[in-house]
């Protein structure tokens, strides 16, 4: 009975709602778009305000900005090689956009735009198109030898080429689904355990209130876990971008 009044709607949190009143509604400006702008603003703010002191011994904000910079810089050089520096801005932008999207979504009341497959797929497709264009620009039509590894008997060509093409086409799909699924799963779990707290307290009174401490504790632990997932998924997205760029630059 009480459960019916508190029926769970764990996916309702992902619904898009227009913001900024009638103007926002007219141009379909949703909270997702607002959060994207916020993510970009936070990233730029971190870099601008972090680097403003230009101290020899960095403060906390400057250290964060410098670490973010050198982290991605090292990742590019390590994964792609010296040529990787050329793609540093792209990888940096992708990493921080995803990271800030994940992190800002953890703040209660905020929206996680990386929990929409439309967003993650658009990001993944951008990465995929950029890497393909880079490969075509560097290697020209020789790029298509990527789909037929050296040393394979020519008889197997029809099979190998098709399989390699499928494998190549599946890159944006796996990239997008991984990020999207991680973020959705995390936020569904948040809402699930949070609604357990409410349902227990409402159904069983004082006893339920005591019992509700269990799911509440799980939720607290989940926040820590989700922080890890936020960084990990942004890292995975960025490092896969680097690996794909490596393939594009070196063709294996």
């Amino acid at each position: 009975m009480a459960a019916e009044s508190h029926s769970m709607d764990v996916l309702g949190q992902f619904a898009l709602k227009p913001v900024l009143g009638s103007v926002g509604a007219a141009v379909q400006f949703t909270q997702s778009n607002a959060m994207m702008l916020a993510a970009a603003a936070v990233t730029l703010g971190l870099l601008y305000f972090g680097m403003r002191p230009r101290a020899l011994v960095p403060g906390r904000l400057q250290a964060a900005a410098e670490m973010g910079y050198s982290f991605i810089h090292d990742m590019c050089v390590e994964q792609v090689g010296e040529e990787g520096k050329r793609y540093f801005p792209f990888v940096f932008a992708v990493f921080f956009f995803v990271l800030m999207g994940n992190l800002l979504g953890l703040i209660p009341g905020m929206f996680t735009f990386t929990s929409h497959i439309a967003v993650t797929f658009a990001l993944a497709l951008t990465v995929w198109v950029v890497t393909t264009v880079v490969a075509l620009k560097i290697h020209g039509l020789h790029f298509f030898s990527y789909f037929f590894p050296a040393g394979v008997p020519i008889v197997l060509a029809p099979l190998i080429v098709v399989i390699e093409v499928i494998s190549y086409l599946s890159r944006p799909v796996s990239l997008a689904v991984r990020l999207f699924a991680n973020m959705v799963a995390g936020h569904v779990m948040f809402e699930l355990f949070a609604s357990f707290v409410v349902m227990l307290a409402a159904a069983l009174g004082v006893v339920g209130g005591v019992l509700a401490l269990g799911p509440l504790a799980i939720n607290v632990a989940l926040v820590g876990f989700e922080l890890l997932v936020c960084f990990l998924q942004a890292y995975v997205f960025a490092i896969l971008t680097c690996i794909y760029l490596h393939d594009a630059v070196h063709l294996h």
Partner: peptide, 13 residues
């Protein structure tokens, strides 16, 4: 999770 997604993604494509 990554392995699982890779496996399914290629199949879906």
């Amino acid at each position: 999770l990554r392995v699982g997604v890779e496996l399914v993604a290629a199949l879906v494509v």
